[in-house]
Design a protein around this nucleic acid. Sequence first.
DNA 1: GGGTCATTGTGAAATCCGTAACAGATGGCC
DNA 2: GGCCATCTGTTACGGATTTCACAATGACCC
Lengths: 212, 212
Amino acid sequence: MTLEIPEVVINRLPVYARALADLADAGESVVSSQALGDLLDVTPAQIRKDLSYFGRFGKQGRGYNVQGLLARLREILGLDRRWRVVLVGVGRLGQAIAEYGGFSPQGFEIVAVFDSDRESVGKPIGGAKIRHSDDLDAFLRTNGVDIGIVAVPALAAQQVVDRLVKAGIQAILNYAPMTPHVPHGVTVRNIDPVLAMQSMTFYIKQREPAGK
Amino acid sequence: MTLEIPEVVINRLPVYARALADLADAGESVVSSQALGDLLDVTPAQIRKDLSYFGRFGKQGRGYNVQGLLARLREILGLDRRWRVVLVGVGRLGQAIAEYGGFSPQGFEIVAVFDSDRESVGKPIGGAKIRHSDDLDAFLRTNGVDIGIVAVPALAAQQVVDRLVKAGIQAILNYAPMTPHVPHGVTVRNIDPVLAMQSMTFYIKQREPAGK
DNA sequence: GGGTCATTGTGAAATCCGTAACAGATGGCC
DNA sequence: GGCCATCTGTTACGGATTTCACAATGACCC
Ligand SMILES: NC(=O)c1ccc[n+]([C@@H]2O[C@H](COP(=O)([O-])OP(=O)(O)OC[C@H]3O[C@@H](n4cnc5c(N)ncnc54)[C@H](O)[C@@H]3O)[C@@H](O)[C@H]2O)c1
Ligand SMILES: NC(=O)c1ccc[n+]([C@@H]2O[C@H](COP(=O)([O-])OP(=O)(O)OC[C@H]3O[C@@H](n4cnc5c(N)ncnc54)[C@H](O)[C@@H]3O)[C@@H](O)[C@H]2O)c1
């Protein structure tokens, strides 16, 4: 139905939702696009435009009802239900992810974790037991799983992505420093702090006429 | 000098550099924009256009010299030197960052780590000793530091960002789930897996006509 | 050394996205 | 109840980014 919404817009909605949740916590009941924009370093026009793709949520002369808009955004993004997630790769990063308390309150439940290292299979982590990655396919097929998190070394990552895709996973959060290939219809987000730093250095350098 | 290069372009350059490094490791000496594009899911025209902002690096009929282009990109991005980084917040995530082996080989050296918890001050982590965050300003002023990594709870993050900025830091990698405010001239990149997942759910939902 | 083929670099066209601006609606006030 | 100040929703515009398409160039071969 709504098939022409720019991806940049979709990527901003969770940011709006997060700010609205903070405002709600702070006891605010109404917010204007101007005030929300100040909070997020976004122009008010952009916020209004973004929201207008989905409907009319505000009241002229007043602004948006914080709880109301938050509820609508959550609905639009599909955050009004819980999502089942598997984690593949339980090294240092994978452990931090498995034990991170920030996912569950947002509706993302890590229902199983996998690793190829037989030594670690069976060990408990973040409420689950580590399973062997050979059992990944079987698990995915018998349990409904929505999202896969990849936290294996770069060299193993494409193989893991392929397995997740073959088993029907629709969305992948990739922490490995590589660009995964997925068929059309699978959504990927990459998290790579090194790339983030490597783009920042360009700007630092620009501002440093000395040095070099 | 070169002041009108779109930020999206700058953000793609490290991705190109990473792929070129992989190609170099694989023994490839030449690559075409087509081949590189296939690797990265980017159109060849985009690659050529991006590179053309900085000069002419290829040879018609042949493509780009892998080592040569990599060297030029590293130079453009400022990756031909080492960068000094401080980490603030040594909780679970901060520890994983401090001990992550992926930064140093790319030229990012974590020269000091800070936390506000007096219990943990003095403990060794990733080659450094944890310092108290009260000493952050003094350290930054006496040691040249280029980049700050923020890994504290959201409620403390703006305060930490402010301190880093006041001490002259030019670039901040923020892991806290909030939008930091910084003056013009300071570069920020945010890393937030929850936001990443929250935008993916939109697309999963789109594809699931059932459910809901 | 000329012909062929592949591939770059780049203006021009097309598309995408953000901003501006304002008509219209709403609440508050007297 | 009418007036005023405020703020939304939306359209139109302009700028930014991507894609297109092709002339120019270099490598290779015979
Ligand atoms: N540690 C960090 O802070 C950090 C930060 C950013 C990115 N990363 C990236 O995340 C990935 C993991 O990092 P790490 O530090 O946890 O590495 P790690 O070596 O500690 O852990 C990798 C884990 O993956 C498992 N594994 C390997 N191949 C597998 C396969 N085919 N199937 C299932 N499991 C497999 C290994 O047994 C190991 O437990 C790497 O790609 C790394 O570059 C890590
Ligand atoms: N753990 C993860 O995988 C993960 C993933 C994504 C984002 N995050 C975010 O990263 C941040 C840190 O997460 P965590 O799990 O490590 O939390 P944590 O509570 O384990 O660690 C936070 C650390 O920050 C320190 N701290 C608090 N206030 C400080 C201040 N003003 N100055 C210096 N240090 C201070 C605390 O003493 C503690 O050691 C949070 O904002 C979290 O939402 C964590």
